[in-house]
Design a protein around this nucleic acid. Structure first.
Length: 273
DNA sequence: GCATTACCCTGAAAGC
DNA sequence: TGCTTTCAGGGTAATG
């Protein structure tokens, strides 16, 4: 399940691999993903050169010259794989970008929750999906000064707040659970009830879990692998996520699991108040 | 207007 | 062993 650290890991590897390459052709499966993939995408991007690759929240944005952007979201199970030799498409391959040097970039997505789209806009922030995103938690603007008034006006449970991409862009279930544990905040606490000390702890915890995960090249349970097919290592460092009934690494009490908004939440009822 | 819920999808795991 | 059911979760439309 690619969240910010996994997409950031991919972005960094893609920059080293495909920047400067010219697209000579695009193959599309024709299957719909989160929404249908527009067939004109291939003609819009053909003969263009990848000049910049950005990450915004969990989105990858490829800039291919003036007024040509390729937007990629990996959803739950999406993968981007780089091939310098021969490879076989499988039933979950939904796009293959062929470069003029014969290397290829393959998009696979078994559950088809991802998104592929092209946009003719001047800047990435004119792409609707990007425009609606909230604050990037690794940006300087993600701080107590910004977060405190936002939380004060919000009645949501803090875990649901952290998953809301229109508020904070890039956190998913794994890192929301981990950040709340690190900050010592119960996931069902209402946002407006958090005090300034807790908000300060939350800002630090969110940044901390994301930076650590990027250092470990992302978290891999079953889905995430990088450009060369290698898994991340951060699953070995998680404190609560998918550790139901196991001992809390801080106090020894069993980790609990509850359902919140159709998602599993893992937490320690002793350490998180 | 805001918060919550249901739905899309397929592979893996659990249950029978 | 093999079939059926359940679960996982990101984003969004529908509902409360």
């Amino acid at each position: 399940m690619p969240e910010l650290p996994e997409v950031e890991t991919l972005t960094r590897k893609l920059r080293k691999t495909v920047i400067g390459k010219r697209v000579s052709g695009i193959w599309l499966s024709g299957f719909p993903l989160r929404s249908p993939v527009c067939g004109t995408m291939a003609s819009k991007l053909r003969n263009r050169t990848v000049c910049r690759i950005l990450r915004r929240g969990k989105y990858l944005v490829f800039e291919l010259g003036p007024k040509a952007f390729w937007l990629v979201h990996l959803g739950m199970s999406g993968r981007l794989l780089y091939h310098s030799g021969r490879f076989r498409r499988n039933r979950h391959t939904h796009a293959v970008i062929r470069f003029s040097d014969t290397t290829r970039l393959e998009y696979r997505d078994p559950r088809r929750f991802g998104l592929l789209a092209s946009y003719e806009v001047m800047r990435p922030d004119q792409i609707p999906e990007i425009r609606s995103l909230g604050k990037d938690p690794l940006s300087p603007g993600f701080n107590v000064l910004w977060l405190q008034p936002v939380l004060q006006n919000c009645r949501q449970e803090v875990k649901s707040f952290l998953l809301d991409q229109q508020k904070i862009a890039g956190l998913g279930n794994i890192y929301a659970c981990e950040a709340l544990f690190l900050a010592g905040i119960h996931p069902k606490r209402r946002c407006f009830n958090l005090d300034s000390k807790e908000i300060l702890a939350l800002v630090g915890a969110v940044r901390g879990v994301l930076r650590r995960a990027i250092r470990h090249q992302g978290t891999s349970f079953s889905d995430f692998i990088d450009l060369e097919g290698k898994p991340g290592r951060n699953q070995n460092y998680l404190k609560v996520f998918r550790r139901e009934s196991e001992a809390c690494l801080r106090c020894g009490n069993p980790i609990q699991r509850i359902r919140q908004g159709n998602r599993s939440t893992f937490f320690c009822s002793e350490c998180q108040k």
